[in-house]
Nucleic acid binder design. Structure first.
Lengths: 188, 188
DNA sequence: ACACTGATTCTAGCGTTGCTAGTATCTCTG
DNA sequence: CAGAGATACTAGCAACGCTAGAATCAGTGT
């Protein structure tokens, strides 16, 4: 079985190679620059090889997004784990969310903006995505009324701030003032 | 000068024809279906005619979006004009915003989601867009601290609710409950 | 050691996209 | 009624996602 295992391993390595290339190219030049031809060139394989790993370009982006969910969940977890004042936790989690979006704008785009096949709020939802949402719920503190809805509205506000700023529809200046407003409104 | 005027008028009519066709096609099948060839076919002209009116597809979408700003501003104005309780005004304006997004999803997309050349929060910002934002500020009531930032955060929350729902990332059910949460948090 | 078989990867190409150069046509002017 | 200028067309380019079919490589059995 060792030959089959080696093949499997090599395939997995190439899978990672594709994802890394897609991520780097997207971060450098945006998702429009991520064409199947350029991607194939970057990994020194021909174009159709991509289709033996992924159904298509959308599938590649979904895979990049899934890894993004893991990173986001980890970042948020770090903030809820540090138990300080409840107000601080909310603020730090929001800040971490915004920070993630700022540091990985194109991955955020794949996760939350571009059309996606990934199922949200269902049984097929990736674990990491559920975990990230759970951190938002936790950050709002216990004993809230309708915690799911509350967290969804908070998430909407955070997401709105991110995308409107990224697309230049909200000024780059004043980000901290807006965060203050948000925390004040959603804090106890 | 009457011949030149007639030509001018005919050009303007064709301009409107293109915009109407783009809008209808987008509403029926989405922006991806709005190709320059299909658009040309719908108005019974050849493809390059489009480029005598617009710089390109993005320019056409921007024009559709601009008309959308006018409609949105008008809808919001109707709610702030009806002076009832301050809490009701905020609620009604938010509801009107969400209603606009629901009734004209693809126009909303061109206005607030897709990459755009339209300048926001600057001197070149279309009048209707400024007006719409001013309605949001007004809905929050007078004598607020940092009314601009507050309105921007409210707008972000509304926008987040819209796009996350439209892309299936937030469940379709519970929209009213989320609106309740939002109004409760941002009301006095 | 060698031919066979099946998986793997490549070349080449399809249909579509936004956009444009160059030609033909059509309209108004002198 | 002929010339000039605006107007709209045909035809084509480069790039896109994706795929069929040929070629090449690896592992197996005799």
């Amino acid at each position: 079985m060792s030959i089959a295992e080696r093949r499997e391993r090599q395939r997995a390595e190439r899978y990672d190679l594709i994802l890394a290339a897609a991520r780097e190219l997207a971060e450098a030049e945006g998702w429009d620059a991520v064409t199947t031809r350029r991607l194939a060139g970057l990994i020194d394989y021909s174009q159709p090889v991509l289709y033996s790993h992924f159904k298509g370009k959308a599938d590649i982006m979904a895979a990049v997004a899934t890894r993004g969910f893991e990173e986001l969940a980890a970042r948020l977890r770090m903030e809820t784990a540090n138990v300080t004042g409840a107000r601080d936790v909310l603020r730090n989690v929001c800040d971490a969310y915004l920070g993630f979006a700022r540091s990985r704008p194109v991955i955020y785009e794949a996760m939350f903006v571009l059309p996606t096949k990934i199922k949200f709020a269902s049984e097929e939802t990736p674990t990491a995505l559920r975990a990230a949402f759970a951190e938002l719920v936790a950050a709002l503190g216990p004993d809230r009324q309708e915690p799911e809805f509350l967290a969804e509205v908070l998430w909407s506000a955070l997401h709105g701030l991110v995308v409107l700023a990224q697309s230049g529809r909200i000024p780059a200046t004043g980000a901290e003032a807006r965060l203050n407003v948000l925390v004040q409104k959603f804090g106890r």
